[in-house]
Amino acid sequence: MLDLGRLRALNAVATHGSIARAAVALGYTASAVSQQIAKLERETRTDLLDRQAGRVALTPAGHVLAQAAAEVITVLERAEAELEEQRGMPRGELVLAAFPTACRGFVAAAIAELAGRYEGLECRLVEIDPNRALTLVVQGEADLAVVHDWHNAPLEMPSSLIGATIGEDLADIALPGGHGLADREALTPADLLGERWISQGPGAMCHRWLLEAFAARATIAYQVEEYESQLALLAAGVGVALLPRLGRAALPPGVRAVPLRPAPSRQVSAVWRRRSGQRPSIQAALKILRDHWPR
């Protein structure tokens, strides 16, 4: 009988395309994932990964076994969900995926309450961007995800998932104190034409918002992933940035946040697989996430 943990590791590599990303999804180290797959190769007497020049790809045999692993994981997940529904109480493992500012803004407190309230529930958190969070939920590697999408850059929801709104998060324009627009009470997109933006890179939701809001004419001069690093640039007198309010750290001295009109906002939602929506742990998590949303 093949080991389920090793099959999960192979399925994660097949899904995410690398050992490093599979490790993040599973909550392991990359070394642990490599060891699991090496044991599976010895167990099956088959090469499952083609390792060349630091890259890995599944061999034909690896693809066959990864597909079988996905089917086995789906069957077991369905059985676990049905057992939990019969018990009527949140039990087992709940893996929650959430984007960074959600983790800081309300998810950390929510998951602490979940773990403290339900003794039989083991909670695990994966901090990850919304697009990759959806992939984790679709593949069964996360049970629930907290995601966001902007009014002009919606998130594409797979048909196998269902979601519920948690709240709306407004964003402001952050500028160095010495900027000519820093003393304005509010700004419009027309005021910001020609500015040099600090933003996350292509694929990020904020990046998409900028391109949509300025018809792809926004100059992204500073590609910076972390909001803390963006604030450091602003404090140094460099660029302008779009900063959501959720999970926002205190602004450094000399940095101002000015409202934009119309106000940009992102909808924050929880998403889960349709077939697992009646699990008591999913329903309990959704309620507690809503309770902890900053009002």
Rank of each mutant, 00 (worst) to 15 (best):
D149A: 11
L83I: 14
T165W: 10
A68I: 12
T219W: 08
P253D: 09
P100T: 00
A112W: 03
I128F: 02
E168T: 15
W197G: 00
G178M: 02
L243V: 13
A53Q: 11
V138I: 13
V64K: 15
E84H: 07
L40E: 03
C103K: 09
R275P: 02
A142T: 02
P264M: 04
R55M: 04
D47E: 15
L65P: 01
V258M: 05
A68E: 13
Q139Y: 07
F214H: 08
L114M: 12
E93N: 15
A204N: 13
Q223W: 14
G116Y: 09
G17P: 08
Q230E: 02
T29E: 05
D169N: 05
V240F: 02
P60M: 03
H151K: 15
L231E: 05
T46M: 10
G203K: 06
I288F: 10
V258S: 10
L155P: 03
V258E: 01
G17M: 06
L114P: 10
L243F: 12
A38Y: 01
R104D: 04
A174W: 04
D50L: 13
A204Q: 08
P202A: 11
A98T: 03
S199L: 09
A61D: 07
E228W: 11
Y222D: 04
D3M: 02
A79M: 03
E122H: 15
L26T: 02
